[in-house]
Nucleic acid binder design. Structure first.
Lengths: 339, 339
DNA sequence: CTGTTAGCGCCTTCAG
DNA sequence: CTGAAGGCGCTAACAG
């Protein structure tokens, strides 16, 4: 438990502590043999530099804070893996905190982390976060922060996002090409840029194929399975069912499917469904769910790389990286008989 | 970006640094008014103690390392939340690493963490880990380590485990009470104590209800969905289908269900299924899956508390805490018509 | 190439 | 109750 220090090694070899230090930091001149000797005996003695002392000197914590809404969700855990892979390989440690979608928790987490002197921050905003004052203050101080996925357009920081517009367009286009005539978009709350963009992608596809925007409309639903279920049930009750649903995310799509199945409505024969941001669930449900796959690992990796760049080179002008995904077509949206 | 230090505060108030330090550490005598004055102006100036310097003094990192096989899996992410909740509230930071089920990664992670002077370690062993030498060495040095879930019985350390035997017994008993006559246990590899215990729980139930151990047998399957699917398909092909499956975990159960559904065999009317270690999936699949719920959050919490106790009070004798769960009965195992 | 010295920011005796 | 001084382990000038 007692740690060997640089002094112990120096004493043992009758050299100065600086020599030992130098042996462990290539950047200084030191005779090859002494260096090797030091390294060897240091290893024998079980010495290795105390990272905390080093951090104190360098005024760097080599800690990076990550704040996400949650990490039960596959999307975020996969992203975190990407973040960690990059950061750990560069000698950083990653401190992960979750806001549970609450602004207060998020703020507290960010404060805790900055109080702990993390060298940078990676943040995905909670659903509740409208007040971005604290981020603005940190950014003004030059604190490196990168946002991903749940972003706020107005923050002057670098961001990594998914091209929601484009892929929602493709998902909708796929439904149209499958011959579905009347399509509703079950959307998320409009203040989330992610939801807004998916909605716009849907509308763009409707427009492009000269379909009526009144008949192919948007219904604000939410992000949860129960919300998708509830809205779908209402549509069924009102005899207002479309031929297909383009959904803001997989939970809403699964909710819609649950309601449809409960009412013995066949998927995709009677109603087609596509989701967004697929999880492994997409393959497991019956019928399997067509969904847009986001490059989760890449998102994390890119975010971390952007952060490192900013830490090392200083803050230039914010850049926004937009990544692409893929549409995985499965049973829920493929008509057995195409008209 | 530039941090206010204890000196700045001292200078501003014309007091000594020690007074400022004392103001921030209740344990010393200091006049109430000066303390308040210091605290107030410190706050104004945006000062707060540099945790790194503090750590250097106290020879503590206030970091805890957590190594798990993975955290895409709900089980582990939920456990980690329990761990974090306890540890963060006590001023610790949690460094999470994953082994991806590989011994080498696990070893590297543990080394990285101990090199970074974590004050303690929480570990869930990878599937591959047979060699426990490094843990033995650390434990011998008095390094606080707690193991959970994936443990190795022979390690002289405290552990938090789930009572697999008992709950597998209950799951099987439930099937028996539902009137299923011929039950197979789809088990995991036998070298995992977790799989072994679930198998034994199954056998115990069969024994208790005087059912034939030849007819109600164990089939070594694995832990993956595809393995459950494959074995079930083989049983169907060989006309050797039981009336019910007790499965080592949910993926295997879901695999079995997939094979059954593909072959138009009705669940639970023709074949009942129960899983183990339920995920949110259990509720989503059709029919919903009966499974044993583990107290994931509690497991994490208990593990963290055990670790803190050991850090604060020193290592006494190892203790093993065994937690209980609950059997969530759903459609997959409930016979519409009970004999 | 190597040793000496002065901190990094804080805590903690030891005097007073 | 308060100040001065030493040191946690390491790095970075500065001499030599």
């Amino acid at each position: 438990m007692k740690h060997v220090t640089i002094k112990d090694v120096a004493k043992r070899l009758n050299v100065s502590v600086s020599s030992v230090s130098r042996a462990f930091n290539d950047k200084y001149d030191i005779k090859k043999e002494t260096k090797e000797l030091i390294l060897r005996t240091a290893k024998e003695m079980g010495y290795h530099p105390n990272p905390i002392a080093r951090k104190l000197m360098q005024q760097k914590s080599y800690n990076i804070g990550v704040v996400v809404p949650e990490f039960i969700n596959e999307f975020f855990s996969e992203t975190i893996i990407g973040i960690q892979d990059v950061l750990i390989s560069k000698g950083y440690q990653v401190l992960i905190m979750q806001s549970n979608e609450h602004y207060e928790n998020e703020l507290m987490n960010v404060k805790t982390l900055s109080d702990n002197m993390v060298d940078g921050l990676i943040v995905s905003l909670s659903r509740e976060t409208h007040n971005t004052e604290f981020y603005l203050k940190l950014l003004a101080e030059g604190y490196p922060i990168i946002f991903f996925n749940r972003i706020n357009d107005s923050l002057p920081a670098s961001k990594v996002i998914f091209n929601d517009f484009k892929w929602s367009f493709f998902a909708t286009e796929h439904l149209i090409k499958q011959g579905f005539k009347k399509i509703y978009h079950l959307s998320g709350q409009n203040h989330l840029s992610l939801a807004k963009n998916r909605m716009k992608g849907f509308q763009k596809a409707i427009e492009k194929y000269d379909m009526s925007p009144e008949e192919n409309r948007v219904i604000e639903t939410g992000l949860l399975m129960d919300e998708g279920d509830k809205i779908t049930q209402e549509l069924i009750d009102n005899q207002d069912l479309p031929e297909a649903f383009s959904c803001v995310n997989d939970p809403v799509a699964l909710g819609a499917m649950r309601a449809l199945k409960r009412n013995k409505i066949k998927i995709p024969e009677e109603v087609g469904v596509v989701g967004f941001t697929e999880t492994r669930l997409a393959d497991l449900v019956d019928p399997s769910l067509t969904s847009v796959k986001q490059p989760t690992y890449e998102i994390g990796k890119t975010t971390a790389e952007l952060l490192l760049k900013q830490i090392n080179n200083g803050f230039k002008t914010p850049e926004t990286v937009s990544l692409d995904g893929q549409l995985n077509i499965r049973a829920s949206s493929v008509r057995k008989t195409i008209a």
